[in-house]
Design a protein around this nucleic acid. Structure first.
Length: 221
DNA sequence: CTCTGATCATTT
DNA sequence: AAATGATCAGAG
């Protein structure tokens, strides 16, 4: 069962407020979903559950989750201190020039211009069903944050456009980094090679470092 | 412990 | 196949 898309930020925030402090099992009951028991890995399940409850509508389209109101949902796994445990995936990296002319039109900027952050307990020893949901934060980057994101994006995209994508590692970027994003090591995606011609290479994704996401969600602690 | 590089699950 | 949702596991 899926909730209908929220028609305003206020409606979205209201829905989020109703599950603050509740468990994932509580939300699963609301949307009539079954949580797996004794499954060794549950990657992505928390995000999909909360999307269903909040009424995200973008599916796997490269767009913000709440299309009507241009808001992206990010659940963020936190430890017992409320500190992020992992980096946050943003979107796939297009490694050909046409979609990467400028920051203003980039998918990274579109997705990050308005984000509902939803912290969720995620220490591995806590069973999925009793993990609790934290306080939702509706966020837009402030001027300094956006400038750093833009700088990171431009630096990384320059390397890609100039044919240096094979030299990119996750150490580039203060807030935004590029890491592999693939089904396995054999996946391929088009990019620009060192000689300027097209090559096939491992698909990459943009991720946000915890340095940024930790600052964002610490607002309420 | 933290971080990078690799991988898993699901949907369209 | 290609996006989404992410976490896993080994290196340092």
């Amino acid at each position: 069962m899926n909730t209908s898309p929220p028609q305003s930020e206020a409606e979205l925030l209201d829905r989020a407020a109703q599950i603050t402090g509740k468990t994932l099992q509580y939300v699963a009951n609301l949307v009539n979903m079954d949580l797996p028991v004794n499954k060794p890995v549950n990657k992505g399940l928390t995000g999909e559950l909360l999307e269903a409850y909040l009424g995200a509508s973008a599916g796997n389209l490269p767009e913000p989750d709440f299309q009507h109101i241009g808001v992206e949902l990010k659940t963020i796994p936190v430890n017992h201190l409320g500190v992020p445990r992992e980096s946050t995936y943003v979107c796939i990296v297009s490694m050909l020039p046409e979609n990467n002319k400028c920051w203003e039109q980039s998918l990274v900027k579109r997705k990050l211009s308005r984000v509902l952050w939803l912290p969720v307990e995620a220490d591995p020893d806590i069973p999925l069903s009793i993990r609790r949901i934290g306080n939702a934060i509706l966020w837009s980057p402030d001027a300094e944050q956006e400038q750093i994101l833009r700088q990171d994006w431009e630096e990384l995209m320059d390397l890609i456009i100039m044919g240096h994508l094979e030299q990119i590692t996750a150490t580039y970027g203060k807030y935004l980094q590029i890491r592999p994003k693939a089904q396995d090591g054999k996946s391929l995606q088009a990019g620009i090679g060192a000689d300027g011609g097209q090559i096939q290479t491992l698909p990459r994704g943009f991720y946000l470092r915890t340095e940024l996401t930790g600052k964002i969600i610490s607002q309420w602690r």
